[in-house]
Amino acid sequence: MSQFPDSTLAEQNLQMSKKSVLELRNVNIFYSDNQAVNDVSFNIRRNKITAIIGPSGCGKSTLLRSLNRMNDFVDGARVEGELIFSNENLYGKEVDPVEVRRRIGMVFQKPNPFPKSIYNNISWGPLINGYNGSTDELVERSLKQAALWEEVKDRLHESALNLSGGQQQRLCIARALAMEPEVLLMDEPCSALDPISTARIEDLLFELKSSYTIVIVTHNMQQAARISDYTAFMEMGDLIEFNVTKKIFTRPAMKRTEEYVTGRFG
């Protein structure tokens, strides 16, 4: 277990797994013949923010996409190992990927609202999944959770494409939240946004933490340090180190991690 050289860490790990939502065990991901992720194992804790950091091309986005089977849509992508969620391996033969994605939501790098009204953006997911409560309430609640309600409450039926980039991304978060997912995956959600929008989304993530489990991929180390509870550092498909964020950024166990977080490379 090279990534947990410290035995106390391993114990700590054991303790924490009680609160795990998702457990990755020896995950390998391939694109056709290329291996993008090598033998990665760690646990994702309930109601915490887990950040995955690393230089671009290190496999962090690929790993994230494997957590709700979005890699199914990439030709030639193959996942080996176990990803335990709700007592099942996500890649088990019996598992329905559609059901997985209902329970594990995702926000993408580029805001991707549907070319429909703000209201329909939120309500569509729950409606196709058999939601039969009040959609008005659902839309209001989700938009409030995403801290967007005040800005859009008077134009819910206007096209979502009229919103600014930052608003669009919060709409995408609201859309994902409307499904009440157990885990929310975020793939560099701020990389296409300006600093002010980024700050608003970071604030939002803090608030969401109490009721959601969040996994966020970011190339921005300050962001990872600010918002996350746990951090996984990856490099060239390997998980170099996984630990509580504070440790990663103050007393990393691995030299590579230290070099990366202190900005000596990457």
Binding site: N13, K18, S20, E23, I84, F85, E88, E99, V100, R103
Partner: peptide, 23 residues
């Protein structure tokens, strides 16, 4: 190393008890 892995997401803890298996 994960003695409690099976218990990790028992219904009591999990907000949704539905299985992710194909229905």
């Amino acid at each position: 190393e994960y003695p409690d892995a099976a218990g990790a997401s028992q219904p009591a803890e999990s907000p949704a008890a539905r299985s992710i298996k194909k229905s």
